[in-house]
Design a protein around this nucleic acid. Sequence first.
DNA 1: CATTCGTGGCG
DNA 2: TCGCCAAGAAT
Length: 376
Amino acid sequence: MSPPRKSKASSPASLVEPARREAIRAGLLAWYDRQKRDLPWRRTRDPYAIWLSEVMLQQTQVATVIPYWERFLQRFPTVEALAAAPLPDVLAGWRGLGYYSRARNLHRAAQEIVSRFGGRLPSTAAELLTLPGFGRYTAGAVASIAFSEPAPLVDGNVARVLSRLFEIEGAPGDKAREARLWELATALVPGERPGDFNQALMEHGATVCRPEKPLCLLCPVREQCLAYRHGRVDELPPAKVRAAPKRMTLAVAVWAHEGRLLLARRSEKGLFGGLWELPTAEVEDDTSDPDSATKLAEALGAEVSVRGHLGTVRRQLTHRALSLRLLRVTGRQHPTRAPAFQELRWCTPNEASSLGMSTAMHKALEAAVSAGALHD
DNA sequence: CATTCGTGGCG
DNA sequence: TCGCCAAGAAT
């Protein structure tokens, strides 16, 4: 029989002792005002630009995002411009950034913002949540940063900071833990400058309350930190358990004809959805060349024969170990459409390299060309 | 609730 | 060379 748990807080703010709440808020905000990094999306108040930064920053580091964000905004400066662009152009702007469903959802959301909201982002987290690509985090981030709504957010940084401050047990993904973290974030955010407070929480997690070797001696809220008081900073939160990456082998058709290569655009769903590639077909690791040719022929809806090997490109993703086996192929007819692909195109290497294409396929393309794919 | 979806940096 | 992971969302 467990002792009666604290009754469910009637108002979120009462979840945290008022004095403690104010100490945490004031400490983090003052620290943020002194120490925040000068990031380009902190120099704008354009909700669209802020939204774009939040989407790009999902599971992606600040340093990686900066050049993409600037380039993308030049190419698609407004919601209307983005909504009007063809998806392949949008994916080309996203090329190399990864998690391409973010770009597809961004594009769809832009179109909905035009059709449903007259081209202006809605200003509340509740409304933002109805748009593709907006989860709880991104809705809270845009609502608070761009529109000053006291909407909470919990990302990986915030989860770590709050886990330590309040000594929350449980591993990432644990339902009770997540609920508790969102309650705490909800309790803390009401007050002045909710957007800055949310960014302060994240910035603190990114630079001081880091996963490894946190800088507790520089921490502005150390005196409020239960994990610090109890010497448990290094054990909170516990690391996420990840599944071992699965092997995936793709036969890649390197089909050259009069100085051009056959390119294909993948289906919208799944891995590298909507991106261009040298046509691929998934095969078993030990598939023979003739069997690979059969798979590629099915995908392309054309007769295909293998003329030789141009090497193998390996690529490690979070959850997959990719093996791209480059096969020089040819056939009697030169297909211009195919059952497994949205679109086919015969491109010069220059044209090909400007298409929206995964980094894995870019490397494969380079490898094929330098192995002499265009010669006999 | 578990799985899927990329990439580059860093120790 | 390799494991770990970073401002998550969709299914």
